Simulated assay, not measured.
Amino acid sequence: MSSHTPSSAQVLSVNVGRARMVGQGRRAHVSGIDKRPTTTITVRDPGDRLTGAGSGVPGDHLADRKHHGGTSQAVYVVAREQLDHWQAELGRDLAPGVFGENVTTGGLVVDDAVVGTTWHVGDHAQLEVRGPRIPCATFAAHLGEPGWVKRFTAHGHPGAYCAVLRPGTIRAGDGIRVHAVPGHGVTVRTVFSAYSGDLEAVDLVLRAGCLPAEEHAELEARVARRRADATPAAD
């Protein structure tokens, strides 16, 4: 199945994170979440999360390989429209890369992308949507906003992690074309809702079988525990 985005869908910024301190006091640690715009990035498959190259963008610092990086989280994409939403909500400027994204887009509804969709970016690069970004303590420390993880989760627009199906160079101004869209209909937002505890969304995601095997098994185990905890004990 093929479809196309509006002609306005494009890359607005490409961003790389250097190793910088995040947080304060005992919680201070090194992270690459604070990404800054650059002229171009090269994207490639980094391989296994723990033993591979880490980020799918050479030169992009990745400190926590237990939870980030690897093939399914090679490139993080966020819509500029979501940064604009949070600018208004927070009353502060949010520059491209501030959410830790490698690619900031315009004219593309990133969060409504069906998992497994492929995007052709520029002349050569091809990305495959794999799932949502899950907010963490590092993200909260970086933004410095009270209750940030809960607020970000409640809004429900997490941005998309992508695998790199075909390597290439990406720069601001590159067009983005949607190429192949799976028929199961499960979007990035649906998966995010499932990870956030929505059992109806969990059922949709598990039936679609759209997640990598390890993440599918993890979601199954998580919902089994949640349902077991909700079951009244026998007298």
Rank of each mutant, 00 (worst) to 15 (best):
V121E: 01
V121W: 10
V121A: 05
G122V: 06
G122Y: 09
G122Q: 03
D123G: 15
D123C: 09
D123Q: 14
D123E: 15
H124I: 14
H124W: 15
H124R: 14
H124A: 15
H124E: 12
H124Q: 14
A125T: 05
Q126K: 12
Q126H: 11
Q126E: 13
L127M: 04
E128M: 15
E128N: 09
E128C: 14
E128D: 04
V129T: 08
R130V: 10
R130K: 14
R130I: 13
R130A: 13
R130P: 11
G131T: 02
G131M: 05
G131D: 01
P132G: 03
R133E: 01
R133V: 01
R133L: 02
R133Y: 00
I134W: 07
I134R: 13
I134E: 03
I134T: 14
P135N: 04
P135E: 00
P135K: 10
C136R: 12
C136M: 03
C136T: 03
A137G: 11
A137D: 14
A137K: 11
A137S: 14
T138M: 04
T138E: 00
F139S: 06
F139L: 10
A140R: 12
A140E: 06
A141P: 14
A141W: 06
H142M: 09
H142T: 07
H142Y: 05
L143A: 07
G144S: 05
E145I: 07
P146T: 02
P146L: 04
P146A: 01
P146S: 02
G147C: 10
G147M: 11
G147R: 13
G147Y: 09
W148S: 06
V149K: 10
V149G: 06
K150L: 12
K150P: 09
R151Q: 10
R151H: 09
F152P: 04
F152Y: 11
F152C: 02
T153E: 01
A154I: 07
H155V: 09
H155E: 07
G156N: 03
P158A: 01
P158R: 03
P158H: 02
P158D: 00
G159N: 02
G159E: 00
G159P: 07
G159V: 01
G159S: 02
G159K: 05
A160L: 10
Y161M: 08
Y161W: 13
Y161H: 07
C162V: 04
C162N: 02
C162W: 04
C162H: 06
C162Y: 04
C162S: 04
A163S: 13
